[in-house]
């Protein structure tokens, strides 16, 4: 039983990084291409586009945090 729980926790921590990473990449792809499109019209939008592009990175930061908490806080309690 405990082994199953350990496995679930480890797999969850893996999934949280992979999935949030993919999600952030997907979102950034769209924002990035839109920002480049806007920049061809108006050069000054570069800085705003750059800032907007990193906004979805929050997702992967949360994913990383969740995975760290799973590995270093939840897992030791199971072992």
């Amino acid at each position: 039983m405990a082994e199953l729980a350990v496995m679930v926790v480890v797999l969850s921590s893996v999934a949280s990084v992979i999935l949030t990473g993919l999600a952030a990449a997907w979102a950034e792809k769209h924002i990035g291409s839109a920002a480049i499109g806007a920049m061809t019209e108006k050069e000054e939008l570069f800085s705003k586009g750059l800032v907007l592009t990193v906004i979805p990175e929050t997702i992967v930061i949360f994913g990383l945090t969740v995975s760290l908490v799973l590995l270093f806080v939840v897992l030791p309690q199971l072992l």
């Binding site: 990175e57 929050t58 930061i61 949360f62 990383l64 945090t65 760290l68």
Partner: peptide, 13 residues
Amino acid sequence: ILSYVRLMAIGLS
């Protein structure tokens, strides 16, 4: 508020 976790996460990466 939770968004400030990035202060830790970016540093860690």
